[in-house]
């Protein structure tokens, strides 16, 4: 991919997201996501991982703070997202991908070339003319990935792309993500599978209760996370349980985790 015109890095500066009645769900996140590699976001349920992705992708606006792309003009056109639950248009598999390309004003002959290519790579060629909503969940997840990939984005957001897939389907998706990364696309994904995070991550973002408690290179994060909650999380301890213990809270030196 052409680095000179890359929309990355993405800079978040003191980003907050609040509900309408003022409850903060994302709190003072400041960080930078650079081009290349795979950034993996981990953290317990309700930590704000999905909200974080939607903020970065521009689906929701921060209540406070800034989210800036290096190349602001046309940044939206260089991103794609695979959602936690795949959204299938009530059309055939092929038409689902075609719709995305059509919106990008790509000419029909090029479109069908791209469609055939991504469907083959995701193993969906056989199902090209099937109604998308008849596909199994794993197939739908692959179609969502194919549809996003067809857009040749510089940044691909993925919200738990392998959740509720069987091991071989998950493996296939991981392989596809590697291929996409090799083509120069920046991956920003969430996962609950720590094994997957270890296998795939180049950098890790640890979210807890709406705060970004750690953002570090993967090796460093997994060998020695600086944050004690992150430490507990990757050891598989139950964070909500620990929080209940008053004495434990007092010992903690990290003021950030307090709500």
């Amino acid at each position: 991919m052409n680095n000179a015109s890359n929309v990355l890095p993405l800079v978040l500066d003191n980003v907050w997201y609040r509900t309408l009645d003022g409850m903060p769900l994302i709190k003072e996140i400041t960080t930078t996501l650079k081009a290349g590699g795979k950034a993996v976001i981990i953290g317990p349920n309700g930590a704000g991982k999905s909200l974080f992705l939607r903020l970065c992708h521009g689906l929701i606006e921060p209540s406070e703070g800034n989210i800036k792309w290096q190349l602001a003009s046309g940044a939206a056109a260089h991103q794609a997202m695979v959602f936690q639950r795949p959204v299938m248009l009530r059309r055939t598999v092929r038409a689902n991908v075609d719709y995305a390309l059509h919106l990008q004003k790509i000419a029909p002959p090029t479109r069908s070339q791209i469609i055939n290519d991504v469907l083959e790579k995701t193993g969906l060629s056989r199902l090209a003319d099937t109604q998308a909503r008849l596909l199994s969940f794993g197939e739908q997840q692959r179609l969502a990935l194919a549809r996003a990939w067809a857009l040749k984005p510089q940044v691909l957001f993925m919200d738990e792309p392998t959740a509720s897939l069987d091991p071989s389907a998950a493996y296939l998706i991981e392989q596809l993500i590697e291929t996409i990364t090799a083509q120069g696309t920046k991956i920003i994904m969430t996962t609950h599978d720590l094994g997957q995070a270890r296998r795939m991550a180049d950098e890790v973002l640890f979210l807890h209760r709406g705060r970004l408690l750690e953002h570090a290179p993967a090796e460093q994060f997994f060998s020695a996370p600086k944050n004690d909650l992150a430490q507990a999380f990757i050891k598989g301890e139950l964070l909500w349980w620990r929080r209940g213990e008053g004495s434990d809270d007092a010992k903690r030196h990290d003021p950030k985790h307090a709500r």
């Binding site: 939607r54 992708h57 689906l59 939206a76 056109a77 991103q79 794609a80 997202m81 959602f83 959204v87 248009l89 719709y99 995305a100 919106l103 990008q104 549809r147 857009l151």
Partner: peptide
């Protein structure tokens, strides 16, 4: 309600 974010993401 079902399509909104997906269509926005695709640039519609």
């Amino acid at each position: 309600r079902e399509y909104r974010e997906q269509l926005m993401s695709l640039g519609a």
